[in-house]
């Protein structure tokens, strides 16, 4: 009996960029609380596909995370 999978995972196309909603123009590397949820357990940056961030903000996030990693606020690898 095949049952259509109930929508446990939402449609990734329906996600909205959390930074666009706030209207952020610059993501600061010192802002640990905002950066932390966009990194996974191993310290990698989460994929845009899962977080729903737009490309512009993903690039900003990347530079911020790289800077934070250099200063020892975020881990390179766990």
């Amino acid at each position: 009996m095949f049952q259509p999978s109930q929508s446990r995972r939402g449609d990734p196309r329906q996600k909205k960029c959390p930074f666009c909603d706030k209207g952020t123009k610059y993501i600061d590397y010192k802002d640990y609380p905002t950066l932390k949820p966009f990194t996974d357990y191993f310290g990698n940056i989460r994929q845009r596909y899962y977080t729903g961030i737009c490309l512009k903000h993903q690039k900003m996030l990347r530079t911020a995370v790289q800077r934070a990693r250099f200063m020892g606020m975020l881990a390179y690898r766990k």
Binding site: K25, Y26, D28, K30, D31, Y32, R67, F70, M71, G72
Partner: peptide, 17 residues
């Protein structure tokens, strides 16, 4: 131990983190 010099973007407001 480590240091970093950065040019903040235009219209950056200094905030105390």
């Amino acid at each position: 131990l480590r240091h970093m010099l950065i040019k903040p973007p235009k219209g950056y407001q200094i905030a105390k983190y």
